[in-house]
Amino acid sequence: MADPILKVEDLMKSFGGVVATDQFFFDIQQGEFHAIIGPNGAGKTTLVAQISGMLKPDSGRILFDGQDITGLSAAERSHLGLARSFQITSVFRHFSARQNVALSIQARQGHSFRFWKPAARDSSLTEPAMKILSDLGLANRANVLADNLSHGEKRQLEIAMALATDPKLLLLDEPTAGMGAEDSARIREFLGGLKGKYSMLLIEHDMDTVFSLADRVTVLVYGRGIATGTPEEVRGNAEVRAAYLGEDDAAHA
């Protein structure tokens, strides 16, 4: 069997005595759609930061496609094929939608120490950027400044930028954050379309999205993975119900 696309071994991270990630193990198989859920403060954000390379773990290893990437920077991980989208929309507001995507393509094409030719007229950037925008149904918004896009469009652009780096693994940090039900459904449908084409790690709050899309789910509580399994297995897990779903039910009651 092939190496898992991502393997996390015994990851530890604490901030001044507060343990945020605690002996965390998990893996994502090639082509798998894996979701991580957990209540607020479970350490999801810290985990994403460590996997994407924004934060150094105290100990433990992260393997990407069989290679130890624990010591690599975020940029180096991106070049290996690990792409992420952000929970808080972080598109480049003063660039057009096309420029946003073109920037990602520029990154994957190697160094950018090119000082003379206008990037906006470089067809090796603009054409693939337009293609990705068309695929997402954003072609007619290509020249609009990202700042002027709707919230849903910004979230889509956010994912488009991650896709444009030609990733092997997509790390999606709460792609439906701050969205209404209608927009959430649209993103869910869109993610469903990506399923199978990319290995994906979804960090999510929205249960509908997680349980309808994920192959496997890992539940994170106080920095520890308390359960991993198919959506049905996780739903049935008593510890999970106590720690998380129970709370969720109570909140809905």
Binding site: A102, L103, P118
Partner: peptide, 20 residues
């Protein structure tokens, strides 16, 4: 230029630039 786009991108959101 491409270089200029990178510099302007860093101004707006450096973490994002690293991530891509």
């Amino acid at each position: 230029s491409r270089f200029g786009m990178v510099i302007r991108g860093c101004h707006e959101n450096e973490a994002r630039m690293q991530a891509i």
